[in-house]
Amino acid sequence: MASGGQGINKELSDLLNELWKLDVNRMKPGTDYKINLQGKAGFVAEGSNIARDCARAPLFSYVNENKLQSIDTYKYFINLLDNYEMSTGVAEQVTKEELQENDLFLDAILKTDVMKCAHRYLVSKGRASPDMGQFKKQLYAIWFKLYRRDKSGGEDSCGFEHVFVGETKHGKEIMGLHNWVQFYTQEKLNNVDYKGYKSRDNKDTPDEDDHVLNLQFSWKGLVKPVGSCFLGVSPEFEVALFTIVFLISDERMTNVKVKVDEYLLEVVVYRFGRSIGTSYPKLVSSNNRDL
């Protein structure tokens, strides 16, 4: 794939901007959700779970619950968030009901224009079968196939759990949890405590209308010194983006720079065999004047 200025992958950027325009289920900042950025997060020593709280209030001051419950892709996504053991090393026990929930979610996102566009692109690159049923099986393997992340236990993890739900390593370290809906859900349950935002590479201050945020938080007593996630985007947009980056590269780690809407992002995807190990966006800058 050809890259443009500043190492930006133009082909992928063009595709992702098409997906961005198709993402009709994306929440509108200031209307469907409101965030309270508060202070800039401080330094956390490696291995420490002590962080200065630079944000006394939650990150999300408002989210349109009606949309979360009435739009199928959000509704079925939320049903998946309580299906996993938090700690690695503890084998997952998948019930028949949970398998059905996985199916319902994939069926819902595959009906969207976002995923149909992603599918067409992957077919054109020879990375997916034209048959939608085969593509669904491929998505299932990438996101829901269980694997052993911790060698001491059984099959304890999958791409969906790590990226969207989050998990802990030996009860001492937060891994994953790169999804805004899960973050909001856990904030409501008082499991997540937002500590403040992290500066981007160009040291500017985030905007409350931003759709991507680098942040610091604690989850059930453990601190994540720096994490990153999209804000307001639909589940299908994230699945499409990370699936595309995963499938177009055979590298163990793929790090690609793209410009989506007004955001300059690094999209990072690690593979775990034929599944996703982790994937997340890293905000480099926003607003066209910064590019």
Results as ranks from 00 to 15, higher is better:
F217Y: 09
D204S: 09
G39F: 04
T73G: 01
V267K: 05
V256I: 15
S70F: 07
F242Y: 15
D207T: 10
Y280C: 04
K75H: 14
V269Y: 06
R148P: 00
K259P: 07
T95K: 10
G153E: 05
W20S: 08
E98A: 14
R274V: 13
G39A: 12
E98W: 11
E167Q: 15
T112D: 06
Y121P: 02
P281D: 10
C54Q: 12
G159P: 00
L264M: 12
F230M: 01
M175F: 10
A2T: 14
Y140K: 14
P29G: 01
I244M: 12
M115A: 04
G153T: 05
A41H: 03
D23Q: 06
V226E: 15
K125Y: 06
L215Y: 07
L139K: 00
S275K: 03
R26P: 06
C117V: 08
V245F: 02
L37I: 03
R200C: 06
V260K: 01
G126H: 13
D23I: 05
T168Y: 07
P29F: 10
P206V: 00
N288P: 09
V245T: 12
L80I: 12
E173F: 06
G176C: 01
P58D: 08
K220G: 03
I244V: 15
I109Q: 02
D72S: 13
G153N: 07
G277E: 07
